[in-house]
Nucleic acid binder design. Structure first.
Lengths: 212, 212
DNA sequence: ATCCGATATATCGAGCCGATATATCCAGCC
DNA sequence: GGCTGGATATATCGGCTCGATATATCGGAT
């Protein structure tokens, strides 16, 4: 869940935890709010799995921007006292810059392609994958969209079958509203799928014929 | 969260855990799927808090239906051997019928009226309260709807302000779709609020005048 | 000089989820 | 009678997320 989001952001550039959280709230914020209680354990898990690694805070980034803010290390006009005060302390709180490893690229691709079991947060899982689906090949992207379409379609049929009879006025109104929302999600998905198919087969004279 | 749903169902009639789970999935199923890992601890918490109590499984219900299925106790044509085999075993698995206490009624009312801090599952929390809002007085119901309206409105403004610029094509499409959904939720709420106001002030000649 | 707020990492308790273990009853079958 | 499979029923486990909180550092305002 959260791992996918972290890997997706680190794929673009190395970041440290605090900045990672800001960007998660910034670009994926409308999906869900990440807390430190989730973020730091997730970073540890990913590091343990070899998907990400820590770039030593004192060393410069391999080939990226020259650190817009000089951060916490390697300032020139630095007194010896300050250097002594900072470096040898074992509890020194420095930035831990995290970088994606080649293994991390694999894990990212696996998570993005994985067919999750339908669960409590199907919504979030799909939205997250969709948000990063520019990293998917055309067929895998279509597969993602159609898996989601199948899931929504089933939910809609189930809702239409049993929901409107039960409960009082408020419960029925709620059920009806959710059914409408699901139907609109489905229509949106259909548009997306159609657009993907058009992008895959740009020839307008062959529409409806997939076999040669 | 889950406590509210349990109390709301037990408010209508005493139930045991298994049946409770079935009804949760049945009538509130389109909200979220309850698991035993949540249900039984929640029941224990509620019992500890004095909000619910166990009706002795052997004793008949106080004044309700005569147990459609005779359940597990008190069948007439029963051998002495069977009685011995069943009753004295300390591990005997019988139904634990739970019943709402007067304290439970209070807790239910508190949970239903409470103004939750905006969190990860604002959605679920509102939907749940709305599903039971027939137990609220007219003004409290209006307050619930308008709190929700305010929250959605803020989210919508935030989304409209910053979302459409960032990210690639897919992320923007996702953000736009979510914004539309939020706008429709808002419109739905406005209808509900208008309906509630009409119900509270049935006189059509005084619309727009709240002070006497 | 010192305090304040932003930056930054980390942990804690509690709740929820999916999976699984355990136990009982009943219907069908030989 | 005895056996099995499936529905009923209670309970726990590990893992993840959340909100709150602790701790530490740094830059700038006073």
């Amino acid at each position: 869940m959260l791992e996918l989001a972290i890997l997706g952001l680190l794929k673009e550039q190395p970041l440290h935890g605090y900045e990672l959280k800001k960007r998660l709230g910034d670009t994926l914020g409308f999906l869900w709010g990440v807390s430190y209680g989730s973020l730091y354990p997730a970073l540890r898990r990913l590091e343990q799995a070899g998907a990400i690694e820590i770039v030593a805070p004192g060393s410069a980034a391999p080939a990226s921007a020259p650190a817009p803010m000089p951060a916490t290390g390697s300032i020139d006009g630095e007194t010896a006292a300050a250097r002594l005060r900072r470096l040898p302390k074992p509890t020194r709180r420095t930035r831990k810059q995290y970088r994606l490893t080649p293994r991390g690229e694999e894990v990212f691709a696996e998570l993005l392609t994985a067919d999750d079991a339908p669960g409590a947060d199907e919504e979030k899982a799909f939205a997250l994958k969709f948000a990063f689906c520019r990293h998917l090949a055309g067929d895998a992207r279509l597969a993602l969209l159609e898996r989601r379409r199948a899931g929504l379609s089933e939910r809609l049929a189930q809702a239409r079958g049993s929901a409107p009879r039960r409960g009082d006025r408020y419960l029925r109104s709620l059920a009806e509203h959710r059914t409408e929302s699901t139907a609109r999600d489905l229509a949106w998905l259909d548009e997306l799928i159609a657009a993907e198919r058009r992008a895959a087969h740009p020839d307008p004279s062959q529409e409806g014929a997939t076999a040669p």
